[in-house]
Computed example of a mutant assay.
Amino acid sequence: MEHKQILSLHKVSKRYGPIQALKSVSFNVPEGSVFGVLGPNGSGKTTLLGIIMDVLKPNAGTYKWFGLEPHADLRKRIGTLLETPNFYHYYSAVRNLQINAAIKGRGHDDIERVLKITELWERKDSKFSTFSLGMKQRLAIANALLGRPEVLLLDEPTNGLDPAGIAEIRELIRNLGQEGTTVIMASHLLDEVEKVCTHVAILKKGDLVAAGHVDEVLANEDMLEVSAANLELLETVLNAMPGLKSLRRHNGGIQVIFENGQTAEQLNRSCFEKGITLNYLAVKRKSLEARFIELTN
Rank of each mutant, 00 (worst) to 15 (best):
T198C: 10
G243C: 05
I254Y: 01
S187W: 04
E179N: 11
A101P: 01
P157C: 13
S132A: 11
L288T: 09
L49D: 05
P30Q: 12
I111C: 06
K11M: 08
L224D: 01
R174W: 06
C197R: 06
E150T: 06
H108R: 14
K245R: 13
Q5K: 11
S92L: 11
I202D: 01
T80P: 01
V183S: 04
I117N: 06
V25F: 03
G206M: 06
A290L: 14
E112R: 07
I19W: 03
W65Y: 04
A60F: 02
K124A: 13
F35A: 08
D109P: 00
N220P: 04
S129W: 05
Q255W: 05
G79M: 11
E150Q: 13
D207A: 09
Q5S: 11
L56T: 03
N279Y: 00
V256K: 01
G67H: 07
A219D: 10
A140R: 04
K205T: 10
L82E: 09
N86P: 03
T80W: 01
V114P: 03
K124D: 09
D54W: 01
T84A: 11
E150K: 10
A164Y: 07
I254V: 15
L82M: 14
L189M: 13
G50A: 12
A140M: 09
L154Y: 04
Y90F: 14
Q20I: 10
L208K: 02
G147T: 10
S129Y: 07
N279E: 02
R113E: 15
G105V: 09
L203G: 01
K45C: 07
L68C: 05
K124L: 10
H3I: 09
L203K: 02
W121E: 15
T277G: 00
Q5E: 14
T158V: 15
I173Y: 03
G160D: 12
V25A: 05
T296H: 02
P70H: 02
E31M: 09
K286A: 12
A72D: 06
Q5D: 12
V237R: 00
I103L: 13
H89D: 15
E2I: 15
E112M: 10
F258W: 03
T181V: 15
G44Q: 06
A167R: 10
K204N: 14
E235K: 00
H3S: 14
L172E: 11
N251K: 12
K57G: 02
E83Y: 03
R106Y: 12
D155A: 09
F128P: 02
G105H: 05
V55E: 08
E150L: 13
P149G: 11
Y16R: 06
G261D: 13
G32S: 08
A219Y: 01
